[in-house]
Design a protein around this nucleic acid. Structure first.
Lengths: 218, 218
DNA sequence: ATCAGTTATCTAACTGGTTAGTTATTTTAT
DNA sequence: ATAAAATAACTAACCAGTTAGATAACTGAT
């Protein structure tokens, strides 16, 4: 059993909710590190400080555990995003902040990026098993719609923009850079995650989004 | 043994180059479909029509086989890209074609996208083992530099653009859309790969790149 | 040309370690 | 007491890699 897990267990009495949570934390780390197929149930059990059967007691199977991990990860992202108070900002400034903010989330939560990569290799088999995830309305998308609406109203944004395409592009410009940095670094022989290089990337992404939004002069 | 593989074997005598190639084809399919960890050596052997030890004879290990698969996939992409004759085009038109062309490659070679996703989950461990892949200069990057240079010279493009950032963005806008379509489809409850929707995406991506490149008026 | 010796190609069966999931049992809180 | 929480030991299937050997192709001497 991992030392941190032993410590966590000693500190408390039996508490099924806390046990569930500790298992989910360990599972998130393992699945994010190795992907669904690379992850090992025994490793998760050991890292969580529980016996393997505790996992089966709480989650039923490796697949269902992964579904729970994804649900928790999506919920965490959603919570982070609802912290945003940019819906009332100037549309262009708001969009720029949105790009920066989204990029920071990818940087600070690399697990989520990796879980998504693995999940898409499985054609979202587990996300589609979840009744919770599709229900989660996406506050970021709503923010985008609101900013777009006001930008168009004030005549500064072009009026033919699809919010879903824009959402995917805002995500893509930073997520792809981060998730594919290892192969890019191998090919371009350059580091992509230094603070300076990362800031350059975020500025690039924000410039790209903002210049796209602007109405052509004339 | 798979039927197609049996047919392929009957048609010819012993031919190590052809055998190697047939194994690589089967391995590419298996690794792309299931990722590195999900792929099974026995499945590849069966699909190729050879005994498992033939794979070990030619490639030594599952890892080295995967490296060979990646090298072959990168080479295929490189060959496709050198077909391009857009280096001499009008810079803006050339960039637009480049975005469209790149997107079509992702659509038509979904295996490559999936191999890259799996490989990046492994932090490019196999790509870094390859001596060939880093050596492959990227003609697409050269094309971008050439178009950028001329666009800046004629005063139509802004002059602060990093070619690598632009390359990654051109890739990202279509690759991320395609590789992450399964989770996006689950969340947005919409199909993303119909011909019409795909064309919308490509237009969106091209618009975004081109509007970014244009020098701000004034 | 043909045959012996040699090497490359390919096969069948096996091995040892791993892995998801199960069963039988004990411990703890109420 | 008893029900929930947790454990230890087990199982059956799987899987990467190996071993030992067979068959086909090549080489050079006759």
């Amino acid at each position: 059993m991992a030392k941190a897990a032993v410590r966590a267990k000693r500190s408390g009495k039996r508490d099924s909710a806390a046990s569930r949570e500790r298992i989910l934390e360990a599972a998130t780390r393992e699945f994010a590190e190795k992907g669904y197929d690379g992850a090992r149930v025994d490793e998760i059990a050991d890292a969580s400080g529980f016996n393997k059967n505790a996992l089966y007691h709480y989650f039923g199977s490796k697949e269902k555990l992964f579904v729970a991990v994804l649900e928790r990860a999506y919920a965490t992202i959603r919570d982070r995003q609802s912290d945003l108070s940019i819906r009332d900002m100037d549309p262009e400034e708001g969009m720029r902040r949105l790009v920066e903010f989204t990029a920071r989330v990818w940087v600070e939560m690399p697990e989520f990026n990796r879980l998504l990569a693995s999940e898409n290799l499985h054609e979202a088999r587990h996300v589609r098993q979840s009744t919770e995830i599709p229900k989660m309305y996406n506050p970021l998308l709503e923010t985008i719609r609101e900013l777009l609406k006001r930008g168009v109203e004030t005549g500064r944004f072009r009026d033919d923009i699809d919010a879903i395409d824009l959402y995917i592009s805002i995500s893509a410009l930073s997520a792809h850079y981060i998730s594919h940095r290892h192969t890019f670094e191998a090919i371009f022989q350059t580091k992509l995650l230094s603070p300076k290089r990362l800031q350059q990337r975020i500025d690039h992404a924000a410039d790209m989004i903002v210049s796209y939004l602007r109405k052509e002069p004339g």
